[in-house]
Amino acid sequence: MRQWNKNFVVTGMGLIIPVSIVILWHIFSVSGLIATNIMPSPLKIVSTIVDLFREGELLEHIGITLYRVSMGFLLGTAIALLFGVLNGYFRTIRYLLDPLIQALRNIPSLAWVPLFILWMGISEASKISLIALGVFFPVYLNLVSGIQGVDRRLLEVGWVHGYQGWRLIRHFFLPSALPSFFVGLRSGLGLGWMFVVAAEIMGASKGLGFLLTDGQTTGRPAIIIASILLFAMLGKLTDYLLELAGRRILRWQDSYESLERRKAL
């Protein structure tokens, strides 16, 4: 029960400022300080979302966007895991591949769009590939640095007990790299949400990114803001789920964060 109270207070503190902003926004809209044809009131946004939901369109848009993000996230993470382990563990492979990956990393997401359309057309494949590309880099980067940061003294424990090759990777390198892998997953997911917008703006007939462009071409700011808010909420929600998973998997960590949580407030 106490634990629930703590969580309640922590969550409540995070809500104070967003809720205040919405209240101010509402007051300004009602009093006419903000032109509602440019910035609709919060109530108008909510009713737009409710309307979209009633028409049955909204769930379809959210569903397809979530599908693209999760497929891209899984694909990007899988490739990052493969290359991260290979490059983190084998020096020769790292010397061969890492400079190239670092160079590709600096290409802005939108620069890939024309190429992906040309290669794969305006298809699900091109969208998912673009998202996977965005997810790949942070996951890869953090995994490699996590693997290379493994405590040599712990590795000696592995060697002394006859751990080599894959068993050494599985029991020593990977668990030790997990905290930094999770940092990578979370920033990868963030980039996944950024890239899905790029992917859906470049040509889609469904999805939250399509709603954005639709709102723009039909001159309905409420739809644009509604989609932005939905992006924010979905992004936060998925990040929260990932954080929960991370906290559970990394519960062995004896860190400042876990200490803080234990005696929170």
Binding site: R153, L154, E156, V157, H161, G162, P175
Partner: peptide, 18 residues
């Protein structure tokens, strides 16, 4: 490293994730 030889290090070196 020999399988019949074991070492007790200065620090315990337990794996925190196990």
């Amino acid at each position: 490293i020999h399988p019949d030889t074991r070492i007790l290090f200065q620090d315990a070196r337990l794996l925190p994730w196990k």
